[in-house]
């Protein structure tokens, strides 16, 4: 479904991604693991077209997404939940969601479905996003991405700094999206969280692919984790 082929990205002269390749299938959760600075967030930004590519392509169902201008990338059905949530802080919950709905001109039915997943947001529709608690903000960031009826979801550390009940709520939504056939690319620091949801795990280091394995093999042999992450 989503194919990332040989990405090379640099900030100025510092090369961050080197020939990075990934494939995420429909109805699958691929987890990106690597140390800090390995290039996980950069990979997501590059997929969204927010960073200039030196070379490489991003292809979604045969369509070359990386040739599009950045604002057209989400219209192909890629929902982005960035690290730090990236909410429009002064806008209300409803306005944040409205921006998500406008991407692919989704109807109010989509909004209703999304709010059914996050009933807390329905109570706070007219509150400004920055006045929400951390967990509610993460719900809003997730809900906003779901508003564009994504075929692919990119989640960058969605559970960072959240309390366990919130982490569980986010996890349930991710699993539900997988069941609906969405391709999920997940960056997550907490290894236990990764092992509980991921179908496959891609290790990266210094912007390069190490190896990509089935999560089942990792669960069976945690020594692999230690080798790649040194944890």
């Amino acid at each position: 479904m989503l194919e990332v082929n040989g990405l090379n990205v640099a900030y100025g002269r510092a090369r961050v991604l080197r020939d990075l390749s990934l494939t995420v299938r429909a109805g699958e959760i691929l987890c990106l693991l690597g140390r800090n600075g390995a290039g996980k967030t950069t990979t997501m930004k590059a997929i969204m077209g927010l960073l200039p590519l030196m070379s490489g392509r991003v292809v979604l169902d045969g369509q070359v997404v990386s040739d599009l201008p950045p604002h057209q990338v989400p219209r192909t059905g890629i929902g982005y939940i960035p690290q730090g949530r990236g909410l429009f802080a002064d806008l209300t919950v409803a306005q944040n969601l409205q921006i998500g709905l406008m991407v692919r001109k989704s109807g109010t039915q989509v909004l209703d479905d999304v709010l059914d997943l996050f009933p807390r947001l329905r109570e706070r529709l007219h509150q400004r996003a920055q006045t929400l608690s951390g967990g509610e903000q993460q719900m809003l960031a997730t809900a906003r991405a779901l508003c564009l009826e994504p075929r692919v979801l990119l989640l960058d550390e969605p559970t960072e700094g959240l309390q366990p009940s919130m982490i569980e709520a986010i996890r349930e939504v991710i699993v539900m999206m997988r069941a609906r056939g969405v391709a999920v690319l997940l960056v997550e620091q907490r290894v236990d969280a990764v092992l509980s949801v991921a179908d496959r795990v891609a290790f990266i280091e210094n912007g390069r692919n190490l190896e990509t394995l089935d999560a089942a093999r990792l669960r069976a042999d945690p020594a692999i984790l230690e080798r790649h992450l040194g944890v």
Binding site: G49, L50, P70, P74, F88
Partner: peptide, 14 residues
């Protein structure tokens, strides 16, 4: 508020 996120949500920033 956030140029990059505007782009990531389909707003034609240019």
């Amino acid at each position: 508020m956030d140029r990059d996120m505007a782009l990531a949500f389909g707003i034609p920033v240019e």
